[in-house]
Amino acid sequence: MAIEVRIPTILRSYTGGAKIVEGAGDTLTELIDDLDTRHSGLKGRLITPEGGLHRFVNIYVNDEDVRFLGALDAKVKDGDSITILPAVAGGALGFAAAAALLGGL
């Protein structure tokens, strides 16, 4: 048994086109580290250089947004299904102003 991870179109270049990959770990951080060993570069699209969850993606453990589960510290286990979706956001606001409003992009 493993943890199933659903990869959005925009990140499938890191998974050889695969829509679903499998990984292991006790927390989201460990899972992402494990995925990055086989899908190099994926981690950089999910985690900022400062070590936070990237603003451009939403990650869900089963039916919950990980931002409500402790973000990168969210617990995961075998049998869980992880979904990654590119955040859909934007608007007329200038990028710098949006970044300030959202606490950094």
Partner: peptide, 25 residues
């Protein structure tokens, strides 16, 4: 299609729109 409105400016993608655009299809 993914749509949104700009309510005081032109209908052209802002830098924020471009930064977030995550659905290449």
């Amino acid at each position: 299609v993914i749509y949104h409105s700009h309510t005081a400016t032109e209908a052209y993608p802002s830098r924020t729109d471009v930064s977030f655009a995550g659905e290449p299809n």
